[in-house]
Each structure stands twice: as structure tokens, then as C-alpha cells.
Amino acid sequence: MKEIRIHGRGGQGSVTAAELLAVAAFEDGYYSQAFPVFGVERRGAPVMAFTRVDEKPIRVRYQVYTPDYVMVQDPTLIPAGIDVLAGLKPGGMVIVNTARKPEEVGLKAENVEILTINATRIALKHIGRPITNTTMLGAFAGATGLVSLDSVIKAIEERFTDKLREVNVAAIKEAYEAIRG
């Protein structure tokens, strides 16, 4: 089983990202599960959402404490004191949305791969708004290979219609390519 934790702020679509990731994994033939830290959502407040992916049905229902992957939608969470690396498994990976290089994001950890992607720029370019949740999924697919680009696109296509579908897919594709270098 692979466990993913997404950090963001209320309004950035972290919960939606977790759900879409679950849908994408299902499209790839896995069982999946997604849920947020349950509570009262307020815009701007730090939030977390989780996705679990496995080859067999998923039973556990507690929060993700030892993720394999972490996505950080908002780099300001790091200086704000959110421990985005908490519990990250050895050999795990964290993907941060930032214009900076991995060594500049303020994260120190051994045996953890830190990747960065300027998802805000990509989202602004395609979607016209700094909503980075779908873009981050493109990067996640590219960086981890846990889910395929096709499935992420499929999940997006199920969720959005018309123009919104088109621009989100474009953003995902660019992020996918960008992180693969």
C-alpha cells in the first residue's frame, strides 16, 4: 500500500486533489481511498488530505501517519511551522510547489527525495488562476509513476467539463513533462 499526504490551505483544492488521485489510481486498476482531515473548512487555514492506493481492498481508516509521498501545495506552510516531512517513510518523496530549487525550500531530511515544481506558474498559464491542485497531480504522476498520466487525465475529464477540462488537462501535461525534466 502506498500512502500520500497532501498539504495545502483551505480553498486550494487539496481535498479534491486527494479524491482525483484516488480516482486516477482506480483507473489504473488499484483500490484507493481518499479523505481529508475532517473538520470545519476555512479558507486559508492549513489543511491535509490523504490518499491510499493498494492492489487489494483498503481497510484501514485512520489518518495517514507514515506517508510514502507528500505533496505541498503552498510552500509558505513550511516556514509557518507545518512539519510536512512528519512520518515520511525512508526513501520517501516530497513534491513542493515553488519556483525555488529543492535545496532552497527549507526542508532538511536524510534519505528523502525533495522535488520542486512551479505549479503556480503552470496553473496561471493554463487555468488563469493559481489553483494548483490538478497541476500538482500531473507532477505527482510524472515524479512517482504511481499513477499514469492517462488516468490522471481521465479523472480530470470525469470531474470537469468543457473549457475547464481542457485547461486543467493542459496544465497537468505540462507539469508531468516539467518534473520529468
Binding site: 486527494a18 479524491e19 484516488a22 480516482v23 482506480f26 483500490y31 484507493s32 481511498q33 481518499a34 479523505f35 481529508p36 475532517f38 481492498p57 483498503i58 481508516r61
Partner: peptide
């Protein structure tokens, strides 16, 4: 735990 969780 059930109402707000996405699953198959």
C-alpha cells in the same frame, strides 16, 4: 469516516 471518504 464513511460519509466523507472516497473509496471504491
Amino acid at each position: 469516516v464513511i460519509t466523507h471518504t472516497y473509496e471504491v
